[in-house]
Every structure is written in structure tokens, then in C-alpha cells.
């Protein structure tokens, strides 16, 4: 005869943990033993639980010391699953890195370098009473090209930014900072500069070769479009004193050890009285196998008092 106490008056919510059923274990394994014992044969608390023999054709991986008791087949299945997930993760990681390296980081670094250069130019615009950092006495007159004396920059300290380079062919916002030395970490890979001046080459404004290096890809890629320069394109180098105007002349491809491109007379086409601008970058893109060299010839010097050259007024933000 049933009484009202037979039925539970409330039920606890069912908690399934883990929520994935492990089907490969035979029934009975891992579940509490439900048989009754007499007092004498009751197993002690420390006794190992009884594991029934595996079904025919199966075997156990029995590492209960670290909490593992599964059939061999399930062990292999899950190991392969974890290995697959690890490999997939590694693949995604590599793709993410590549996307970051040649895309995202390059783009962000370019934006930052443009902005830093623009603010540097802004500083030069504001009149100060401080003496110019340029040695006007060292400048030589350049009668053939220009009536103005061309000032020569004093050798800046390593990693010091001392000029900006403005190339209209590279886009309407292209302004990058030139810092002294071609130190990879402090100058070429740096968000504050990006373009480096070979310390061994001539100073800006000096007769000879003013040589620069910049990345073709990644880290803002200051010289990423170097192969798009057309003969006669103007390249402006701005300092506190004014603008050095160069005209692009030709491209050369060399091996990485070809340091002659930094010489005051890198090519026979150059006359000993010429001021030359040499830009080096890597070639082909994303490779370090060769170097691409762009030569430009000095055209004129525009002092700051003469105002921003008309071609770049919109680029340097001077209004």
C-alpha cells in the first residue's frame, strides 16, 4: 500500500557534470557500487575501486595516479583531437602574425610616422630665438643652380631626428622623419622616424652624396613606393633652415654588400660638384636579397623665409 511519503515532495535540479557523456566506457565503470556488503567483507575506504575487465577487443589506459582511466581507443581519439586543435591554433597564429606584420603594423606605423613628422615640421614653423643648428659658414654657394647659399647640416647625434622627407609622388600625406644613423632599432624600425641617414655619407647640403635608408615593407614602409618614382619627381627635404629640393633621376638594383652606392660619386654620370640624394631600400618587396637604390640630383635650396614651396603647401600643413 503506497503512502504519501513514497513520492518525493521536491526534487533537486539535475546537475550533469561533465555534460558530455563518455560512451566508450563500459557500464559500471566510474559509477558507485550499488551492491550491499556484510560488515566483514565491506571494502576499506583506502581500497582501490574495482574496475571490471574491459570488453572484448578493448583495453584500458589506466593512469589513475593522474586521474586518467579510459579505453585505449578513446585515449587515441582525444589525443588526436587535442593535437589537431593545437596545430590549427598554430596555423591561425602564423596567419595573424603575417597579417599584423605586413598589414596592420605597417599601416599603423606609417600613420604614426606621418603624424610625428608633421608635428616636427610644425615646430620648425614656430619662430624661436634659438640660433639655427646649421653651419651656414660651411655652406658653399651654388651658382649654377641657385643664387642662395645652401646651408650644410652639422652632424647630428645618432638617432636624433634632424630633417623630414616629403615626396608628393608617395601620396598627399607623405612626410617622414630622417634621423641620424641607420640603426635598425632606434631609427629604421622606430615609430618616431623610419628613415635613417648613413652617418658615413655626406651631410645634407654638402657636395657629395646624402644617403638615406628606409624600409620597403613593414614598419611604416617609408620607401614602399620607391619604384613608382618618375624621372623628374621632386623630393623635398625639410630642415629648420628650409627646403632642399631634389629631382629623382634613376633607379639601380644592387646586391646588399654594394656600399659604393654611398660614395660621393656613386655613378660615373655624377659630376664632382653635384649634390646627390641616394635612397636605399630592400628589393624585392618582403625580401632582403637585393637593394633598390634611387638617385636624385639637387636642384635648389628654398630658405624658410621664402615660404613653403607651392607643390607641398598642402602636404606640410602650412597655411
Amino acid at each position: 500500500m503506497g503512502s504519501r511519503f513514497d513520492k518525493p515532495r521536491f526534487s533537486l535540479p539535475r546537475i550533469e557534470w561533465p555534460n558530455r557523456k563518455r560512451r566508450s566506457l563500459p557500464p559500471g565503470v566510474g559509477e558507485p557500487q550499488r551492491r550491499t556488503y556484510t560488515l566483514r567483507e565491506a571494502p576499506s575506504r583506502d581500497a582501490a575501486p574495482v574496475v571490471p575487465p574491459p570488453p572484448k577487443g578493448r583495453s584500458y589506459i589506466d593512469w589513475r595516479g593522474i586521474g586518467i582511466l579510459v579505453t585505449t581507443r578513446e585515449f587515441i581519439d582525444r589525443s588526436l583531437g587535442i593535437a589537431g586543435e593545437l596545430l590549427t591554433t598554430a596555423g591561425v597564429f602564423v596567419l595573424l602574425f603575417l597579417g599584423w606584420h605586413v598589414g596592420f603594423n605597417d599601416y599603423i606605423a606609417g600613420l604614426i610616422q606621418d603624424r610625428k613628422s608633421a608635428s616636427l615640421a610644425q615646430e620648425w614653423e614656430t619662430p624661436t630665438t634659438a640660433p639655427l643648428e646649421f653651419d651656414r659658414a660651411a655652406g658653399t654657394s651654388d651658382g649654377a643652380n641657385n643664387q642662395t647659399k645652401t646651408p650644410v647640416t652639422k652632424s647630428p647625434r645618432a638617432a636624433d631626428p634632424f630633417a623630414t622627407i616629403i615626396i608628393p609622388r608617395f601620396g598627399p600625406h607623405y612626410v617622414r622623419t630622417i634621423a641620424e644613423s641607420v640603426d635598425v632599432e632606434k631609427v629604421l624600425n622606430n615609430l618616431a622616424s623610419g628613415v635613417g641617414h648613413y652617418s658615413g655619407s655626406n651631410q645634407l647640403g654638402e657636395i657629395g652624396n646624402f644617403a638615406l635608408a628606409g624600409h620597403r615593407t613593414t614598419y611604416g614602409a617609408p620607401f614602399g613606393d620607391i619604384d613608382r618614382l618618375r624621372v623628374g619627381d621632386r623630393i623635398y627635404i625639410e630642415t629648420k633652415a628650409g627646403w632642399y629640393v631634389y629631382r629623382f633621376r634613376n633607379i639601380e638594383f644592387v646586391y646588399p654588400d654594394e656600399t659604393t652606392v654611398l660614395n660621393p660619386l656613386p655613378q660615373t654620370l655624377v659630376a664632382a660638384k653635384d649634390r646627390l640624394l641616394t635612397m636605399t631600400s630592400c628589393h624585392p618587396k618582403l625580401s632582403a636579397a637585393e637593394r633598390i637604390i634611387a638617385y636624385s640630383l639637387f636642384e635648389s635650396f628654398v630658405p624658410r623665409t621664402a615660404g613653403t614651396p607651392s607643390e607641398i603647401t598642402s602636404m606640410v600643413g602650412a597655411d
Partner: peptide
């Protein structure tokens, strides 16, 4: 992580020299 990998393992030389 990515800046470290780029600085340590990726050669992106743009200079001429030894």
C-alpha cells in the same frame, strides 16, 4: 609577442653594408 617575433626572427634589411 608579434613585435618580439618580428624583431628577433624576421630580417628586413634596407641598408647596404656588410
Amino acid at each position: 609577442v608579434f613585435p618580439w617575433i618580428a624583431a628577433t626572427f624576421i630580417q628586413s634589411e634596407s641598408t647596404v653594408g656588410q
